[in-house]
Simulated scan of single mutants.
Amino acid sequence: MTEIEQDAYTIRQARPDELHLLAAIEIDAFWVLHEAGAVDCEPTSLSLDVLKQSVAQQLLFVAVDIEDQPFGFLAGIRKDGSVHIAELDVVRRWQKRGVGRRLMEAAIAAARTQGAVGLTLTTDRQAAFNAPFYASLGFRILDDEQRPAVLTQILENEFAQGADPARRVAMVLRF
């Protein structure tokens, strides 16, 4: 990545007036997961209630271009002392430029500042831009017996929506 490309976007807290823009980002990014075989369902997006909660907790970050238009986002929610990453998406034309990593770094920093014990998420174990990406940030996969009930419930909800149980995992980064 050239210096110009890196400076062509900024990571910042999302504003409430931007929430309506995030579904389009999530749906655009969905197709990459679909093509990788990670999902076999119709695209969905986070509820407005989850996004509002994430904003209220100062855990909704956006990647914006030089015109301050969002093209990626990360939504975190505090759960059981940790920050759960509910969603991380970057539109296809901005992928593979380090945007997802910078969004995750912002969430990790915010979780530390807010006194969380770590971060959790669920993801696809096989797609390179999912579990292997999170592992590069220090996350580790939780075995069934290590997984807290809240993450088991999230996984079960994902299975009910069409996610492949053989591919989905819960991951944690502890501080």
Rank of each mutant, 00 (worst) to 15 (best):
P43G: 10
A107W: 03
G118E: 03
Q153M: 08
A131Y: 03
A128F: 05
A23G: 14
K79W: 13
A127T: 06
R174K: 12
L48P: 00
P132Q: 11
N157K: 14
E35A: 14
Q69P: 00
C41G: 03
R167K: 15
Q58V: 05
W94E: 03
A149W: 02
W94F: 14
L48H: 13
V83E: 07
E26Q: 14
F71V: 00
D7L: 12
L48I: 06
R168E: 12
D65S: 05
T44D: 11
G100N: 09
R168F: 02
A75W: 02
K52C: 05
P43D: 11
I4P: 00
L155T: 04
V32A: 13
K96C: 10
L21I: 04
Y134Q: 11
D68H: 14
E35H: 06
K52F: 01
A29S: 15
F133Y: 12
V55G: 02
A86I: 04
G81I: 10
M1E: 03
I141Q: 14
E42N: 07
A24E: 14
L51N: 09
L48E: 15
G72R: 06
V32Y: 03
A127R: 02
A29G: 08
T120M: 03
D144T: 11
A23V: 08
L155C: 13
T10N: 10
L119Y: 09
K79D: 10
A29Q: 01
Q6R: 14
E145Y: 05
V99H: 04
K96Y: 11
